[in-house]
């Protein structure tokens, strides 16, 4: 298989536009609860999923919409699931964190790190029942500190299972900067368990595609698991309505509700000495400053924009493609909304 940037870009664009539509539904209140989008990590998903074929399995995290779409699940079913309709992908029972497609051997979980054991189990059954098939696990850097994921990497190593562990590293574990709660180097952890670790620029879809292709080929041919470590940014942070991003985007609306209780508490009688309180304040401010400086605010980190730069050499084809994808999504949205709740 040779690299086809046009088709990888198409996958990414479809996903981006779908997730932007999901965001609009969420802001309009048509979707309740949390909403974790994968905007910003599309290059990682596309670069891996483009290699998958019948019999391969995926274990997804709480951010799995994009992978399902790229794997070929009907976007109408996905959207109708998110809207809570009976004819959605999972009958309106699962929601975006719990999307399942038996046909694609794909399971999601809202429990951080649970993708590890799931991928290992899928790979184990592949060894018996689907020789040459593989399993992928998608998770974030926060999940790397979860015991069951570390145990799974070891298990895949010990049993020489065809697993691709994909760490989508955006530097944040929910609202905490990962470096503050993570010891050592993630690639070294995998290597320490006997699993080859590959570092790749998660914003470069071609690079991810190349690296994932080699790892998947190795797994298919019985050479065991690989750990793919890809850095990326999440434009919306952990989830839509992410408090830190709201604070940066709309400081005048968001700040009073946060700073007034914070100040009162800082000045409250009873508690630590002033220098300890200042250390506490510094820690709170550090998270805000990190968000302000966050690379997610820099559009140069957008994997779609990066792929587009290369494709712009053929402007006519690019425009035609984008128009086509937009038209497809518009048709999807009309179908989804025309149906109403079933």
């Amino acid at each position: 298989m040779s690299l086809d940037l046009w088709s990888l870009y198409t996958l990414m664009l479809k996903s981006r536009l779908l997730e932007e539509a999901i965001a609009r539904f969420w802001y309009d209140g048509l979707i309740s609860g949390e909403m974790h989008l994968g905007t910003g990590e599309e290059a990682i998903i596309a670069g891996v999923v483009a290699h998958l074929r019948d019999g391969d399995a995926m274990a997804l995290d709480h951010r799995g919409t994009s992978a399902l779409l790229m794997r070929g699940v009907d976007p109408v079913l996905i959207l109708r699931e998110l809207l809570g309709y009976e004819d959605g992908l999972c009958g309106g029972r699962g929601g975006h964190m719990h999307l399942f497609s038996k046909e694609h051997l794909t399971a999601s979980s809202g429990i951080v790190g649970a993708e590890g054991p799931t991928a290992v189990g899928f790979a184990l059954s592949a060894q018996y029942l689907r020789p040459g098939a593989i399993a992928t696990a998608f998770f974030g850097d926060g999940a790397m500190n979860q015991g069951m994921l570390m145990e799974s990497i070891n298990l895949a190593s010990a049993w020489n299972l065809p697993v691709l562990f994909v760490c989508k590293d955006d530097g944040w574990a929910i609202t905490t900067q990962s470096k503050q709660v993570t010891g050592g180097d993630l690639g070294e952890r995998a290597r320490g368990l006997g699993v080859p670790a590959v570092e790749v620029d998660g914003g470069d879809v071609s690079a991810v595609w190349e690296a994932a292709g080699r790892a998947i080929e190795s797994a298919r041919s019985g050479q065991g698991p690989t750990f793919l470590h890809a850095r990326c940014v999440h434009f919306e942070g952990h989830f839509l309505g992410f408090q830190l991003i709201r604070m940066v985007r709309a400081p005048f609306r968001e700040m009073p509700g946060i700073t007034i209780p914070l100040t009162l508490s800082f000045l409250h009688s009873g508690g630590a000495a002033l220098h300890e309180r200042l250390e506490g304040l510094k820690a709170v401010l550090a998270a805000v400053l990190a968000t302000l400086r966050d690379p997610r605010r820099d559009s140069a980190n957008d994997p779609l924009r990066r792929a587009r730069t290369t494709l712009q050499s053929d402007t006519a084809r690019l425009e035609e493609l984008e128009e086509q994808v937009e038209k497809e999504l518009s048709n999807v949205l009309s179908t989804v909304l025309a149906g109403g709740p079933s």
Partner: peptide, 22 residues
Amino acid sequence: PLLRRNLLVRFGPKRVRGAPIS
């Protein structure tokens, strides 16, 4: 540090601390 930020600025990071997802 985010969820209990009001206690963090009153009691300091030695008594109010963030943990990994572990």
